[in-house]
């Protein structure tokens, strides 16, 4: 109970701070729209490659870009925690009885809400450009769920890094190191059918690819068995990352 209440109070603090930065809000709305328009135009012709397996690239891209936005946004969630560390806010919070897990869960929830809002905008723009959610409302929910689970996992990971490294440069470098490769080792912007064999093999172990697969299967209304497996894997991965981040407070305490 206390965990949930603390999480909620800390989440309210973060969301309020976000809403007070209108420029940030506008950028996070415009950015995903730009991704859809830019990638949609740039890769338009790949659908003509034999074996790509999709008729319209926007149709193919919409769930993928939703996941990409989740990944790019959540990966830097730890920067907010670093700002709290620098300003003494984290220490002030840690000296209260607040649940340590809630300090992380509040940030994860904050990242997940942003992710869902952005995914909603992406799907809307894609719809205007002709994409159709063949999976209906459950399909759209699957996109939201996989995007927010991936966002939660990477937010947890990023916060753990922030607590352990306590340096902006390190968090940025580490996340850059992870984000782009895991994007390209997935079927986010390229059909699985056209991947080289080794990338297809590697993508099986890539949480980003789990999210892309679940989102796309849901969006296209495909058989749910693989989607369910991917969502379960993602949920487990998110839990592990959140747990690791919470445990990192112990490391932080020893080092300080």
């Amino acid at each position: 109970m206390e965990f949930l209440r603390d999480t909620w109070h800390l989440f309210v603090r973060l969301i309020r701070a976000t809403m007070r930065m209108p420029v940030f809000v506008i950028i996070s709305i415009v950015q995903p729209v730009l991704w859809v328009l830019l990638f949609g135009q740039l890769f338009k012709s790949v659908t003509t490659i034999p074996g790509f397996g999709a008729s319209s690239y926007v149709q193919f891209l919409a769930p993928g870009i939703s996941i990409m936005t989740a990944l790019f946004g959540a990966a830097y969630s730890g920067m907010g925690l670093l700002a709290d560390i620098d300003r003494g806010v984290l220490d002030r919070l840690l000296a209260t009885p607040v649940s340590r897990g809630a300090l992380i869960a509040g940030r994860i929830l904050h990242a997940a809400v942003q992710v869902v809002v952005q995914a909603g905008i992406i799907l809307l723009v894609a719809f205007i450009l002709g994409a159709r959610p063949h999976g209906g409302l459950p399909g759209v929910l699957a996109v939201f769920l996989s995007a927010s689970l991936l966002g939660a996992a990477f937010a947890g990971f990023s916060n753990a890094l922030a607590l352990i490294a306590r340096r902006q440069e390190l968090v940025i470098a580490a996340m850059n190191f992870v984000v782009l490769p895991s994007t390209f080792l997935s079927s986010m912007i390229m059909s699985r059918n056209l991947m080289p064999g080794w990338i297809r093999g590697a993508s099986r172990f890539n949480p980003v690819n789990w999210a892309v697969t679940a989102a796309r299967d849901g969006f296209e209304g495909r058989a749910p068995s693989e989607m369910m497996l991917c969502l379960a894997l993602l949920a487990g991965f998110a839990l592990i990352c959140g747990f690791l981040a919470t445990r990192s407070f112990g490391r932080y305490r020893k080092a300080m």
Binding site: R13, R16, G88, D91, R92, L93, T96, P97
Partner: peptide, 24 residues
């Protein structure tokens, strides 16, 4: 603390309220 723990994006009232909430 020596370094102020105030959340500068929040108002004085919000800061105090959150602090109280964390003490239940």
């Amino acid at each position: 603390a020596q370094a102020s723990g105030v959340d500068v994006t929040a108002t004085g009232r919000e800061n105090l309220t959150l602090q109280g909430q964390l003490f239940r």
